Amino acid sequence: MNSKDLKLIYIWDAYCGWCYGFSTGLNEFHKMHPELPITVLSGGLFVGDRKRPISDYPHIPGANQRIEQLSGVKFGDAYQELLEKGNFVLDSEAAAKGFAALEHFSSEKAYELAAAMQKAFYSEGKSLSEEATFREIADAFGLDADEVIKRFKSDEAGRDSLKAFHTVHNLGVNSYPTLLLQKGEKLIKIGGGAMSAEKLEENFRTALQNDSLES
């Protein structure tokens, strides 16, 4: 099959610790395959009645330890303080709006922008509901920060984030992270959890030969 018929679809949530861990392997895999375009879709993990203080999710500290062990990522001291205080509200809709605003001005760097958002939260303890966080990311990527913030506060960003949520729902994906390979008209899951670049490569090669594989 021609490589032009292949692309990656990465389904994540900015407040998903497993996505933060997955970023290490995905980043390496992405560098190995620059020929594969990657679409990034926000999944909406903490929306509706799940938009609650982080202390309402007591499994998170234990999960973070497991993520560190499996992926090698580190959760920063500033994030650990948020975790200990417990009153930080996880709001995936606000984060998705911020991502949509950034992506609007630099769609070719969608994955890098997503990774920058997770670094801001999990390493630096910065809120993904605050304008200041997206202003810093915009500046780091050479984007017009004022335009990014204007977009972040607009109805368009809200519509873009909801469109992403609906697309993910229609794909039948309810677990984050999920990496799909689009092979012509077929979608094949090749990654999730804290998977290494080597395992992603193995799954990718298998997917090129078959239409199904174990995730």
Score class of each variant (00 low, 15 high):
residue 11 I to Q: 06
residue 11 I to Y: 00
residue 12 W to P: 00
residue 12 W to T: 12
residue 13 D to L: 03
residue 13 D to P: 04
residue 13 D to S: 08
residue 20 Y to F: 15
residue 21 G to M: 06
residue 23 S to Y: 03
residue 26 L to P: 01
residue 27 N to R: 11
residue 30 H to N: 13
residue 31 K to P: 02
residue 34 P to L: 08
residue 38 I to Q: 00
residue 38 I to G: 02
residue 39 T to I: 12
residue 40 V to M: 08
residue 40 V to C: 15
residue 41 L to V: 02
residue 43 G to I: 03
residue 45 L to R: 03
residue 47 V to W: 04
residue 47 V to T: 15
residue 50 R to I: 07
residue 53 P to A: 02
residue 53 P to T: 12
residue 53 P to V: 11
residue 55 S to I: 12
residue 55 S to C: 14
residue 57 Y to W: 05
residue 58 P to M: 09
residue 60 I to D: 01
residue 62 G to Y: 12
residue 63 A to C: 12
residue 64 N to W: 12
residue 65 Q to T: 10
residue 65 Q to S: 14
residue 69 Q to C: 09
residue 69 Q to R: 12
residue 70 L to I: 11
residue 70 L to K: 10
residue 71 S to W: 00
residue 71 S to T: 06
residue 75 F to W: 08
residue 75 F to V: 10
residue 75 F to E: 06
residue 78 A to N: 07
residue 80 Q to V: 08
residue 81 E to V: 13
residue 83 L to Q: 13
residue 85 K to G: 13
residue 86 G to E: 08
residue 86 G to L: 00
residue 87 N to S: 11
residue 87 N to V: 14
residue 90 L to F: 03
residue 90 L to D: 01
residue 93 E to G: 08
residue 94 A to Q: 10
residue 94 A to M: 07
residue 98 G to Y: 04
residue 98 G to V: 02
residue 99 F to S: 03
residue 102 L to F: 04
residue 102 L to M: 14
residue 103 E to M: 08
residue 103 E to N: 14
residue 108 E to S: 13
residue 108 E to A: 12
residue 108 E to Y: 11
residue 110 A to H: 02
residue 111 Y to N: 14
residue 113 L to V: 07
residue 114 A to D: 06
residue 115 A to E: 04
residue 115 A to M: 07
